[in-house]
Design a protein around this nucleic acid. Sequence first.
DNA 1: TATGAAAGTTTTAAATA
DNA 2: TATTTAAAACTTTCATA
Lengths: 153, 153
Amino acid sequence: MAVRLDELDRKILVQLQEDGGQSLDDIAKNVGSSKTPVWNRIRKMREAGVIKQQTYLLDAEALGLEACFFVLIRTSEHDATWQKAFLKALNDRPEVQEAHRLAGDIDYILKVRVANARAYDVFYQALISEVKVHNVTALLSMEEIKSTTMLPL
Amino acid sequence: MAVRLDELDRKILVQLQEDGGQSLDDIAKNVGSSKTPVWNRIRKMREAGVIKQQTYLLDAEALGLEACFFVLIRTSEHDATWQKAFLKALNDRPEVQEAHRLAGDIDYILKVRVANARAYDVFYQALISEVKVHNVTALLSMEEIKSTTMLPL
DNA sequence: TATGAAAGTTTTAAATA
DNA sequence: TATTTAAAACTTTCATA
């Protein structure tokens, strides 16, 4: 799935990640090229799936989502039916921002954003009533030190 | 810092999060309003800091970043000087996508994206040589089950 | 909130290196 | 093959009703 990109492609991606509101002209100026080549490369990278989505990032706190938890999950169930139900439960819940299946001792990690501790408990109770999990540890974030969607190029 | 938003504001934010490339006309149509009110509300939410940034999301795997680790850190140092050095180290490293200071037993959690296990080790060695940490556990992601920047509205 | 017009941007096509 | 030029279609922005 890896794609070959040259220096100019990379520079364009940096610009798009840093400020997705720039005009083609601005991007072209910032990467030392001109409009059409930049446009063609963006189109190609979109088609190749390198560029997945254009979006606006919102401020969670300004929206009243003041609590963020990392949830470590161990399960005793590992069959396909259970996995499917668990996956569905996660995808159905918009407060789950990330979910990864892990190697090793802990089976899953989730990142969950909610209004407060009470809202987390509601989420947690609903989740464990829907799918059986063996052991759950919630880590409460006190402070978001860094948060970026920018991938290193 | 919380802001009061009405139903229409929320609908607009949903549209912006889902597809940041839509024209004002399209957004207006999708939320059942017209251009001017939508535009004014977007401007206000930008000024209020509810809308932080416009960006493009890239595909980590397509860029060759095939490994993702969650790193749990315990430290014995808690003074301001250490914290500042640690914070700087994290901000200087683009492979660190997220960093949170936690309540409880574990002090910090990081999300780190790198090309492979070897690149993680390079990152890890560089980090611990720069700041003293007491105990580090790395959780390796086998599969990204869910990943979204969309906040629930 | 709606209309509309000026300024700016994206997209396509044709010409050029 | 990739870039520049050019022009049509569309969008944003903002003044005025």
